[in-house]
């Protein structure tokens, strides 16, 4: 695990997703995907003028927050982030969904950590999706452990992990037709 490299790569990734960001020189397939991401990001930026946080990387104060790096990226970049952190030997801890109902968004938080010995290193990756169309690609093909976490997030919040092999009811009863962690949920 190379902390400086992870930081640099994640910074680059977050910059790619910014509407004003210059397209990076990468393989052609990636450029195509980036074009898509830019369009989305532009649309997103127009829609949400007063979103508190823009895409980008923050070095958080570990003593106060409990994480070392905190990066926000576009939803279509989470797979790339997972691949990057996987190649550096990081582990997925959990996947959390947060319902920001006032902003009309869901936030998906991926917690990565380094569990192969040595001092702990925690990376938080965030992405925001539209609440009316909550689609985000799955990372369960990279991290098997993300499978259950994503399934649970789908079940409790209704965030659709595109490409997930088994989005079926998990903790709730089979006939549950509600999302209990959504802020507009009425029991």
């Amino acid at each position: 695990m190379d902390r400086a490299k992870i930081k640099k790569e994640l910074e680059k990734l977050a910059a790619e997703g910014l509407p004003a960001g210059q397209p990076q020189e990468e393989a052609p397939v990636v450029v195509q995907a980036e074009g898509e991401g830019e369009d989305k990001a532009k649309a997103k930026a127009k829609k949400e003028e007063d979103v508190p946080r823009k895409n980008g990387l923050i070095e958080t104060d570990y003593a106060k927050r409990g994480a070392h790096l905190d990066v926000q990226i576009n939803p279509d970049q989470v797979v790339k982030a997972a691949e990057l952190l996987d190649s550096e030997g990081m582990t997925i801890d959990m996947v959390t969904g947060v319902d920001w109902i006032k902003e009309g968004q869901f936030e998906i938080i991926y917690d990565y950590s380094y569990t192969a010995g040595g001092p702990a290193f925690r990376v938080v990756v965030r992405a925001r999706v539209d609440r009316n169309k909550p689609d985000i690609p799955t990372i369960s093909h990279i991290y098997g452990g993300a499978n259950w976490h994503e399934r649970e997030t789908w079940e409790l919040l209704g965030i659709n992990f595109v490409g997930h092999p088994q989005l079926e009811h998990f903790l709730l009863p089979e006939d549950a037709d509600f999302f209990p962690l959504r802020k507009d949920f009425k029991p």
Binding site: G89, T115, Y143, G145
Partner: peptide
């Protein structure tokens, strides 16, 4: 490797030869 991919911790991870314990590492 499978422990890492699935985020296994505790005695399961330490039984697979990885010295990781929050009490020491964090």
């Amino acid at each position: 490797e499978i422990c890492r991919k699935y985020g296994a911790t505790g005695p399961v991870l330490r039984g697979s030869g990885i010295n990781f314990d929050i009490r020491k590492n964090e």
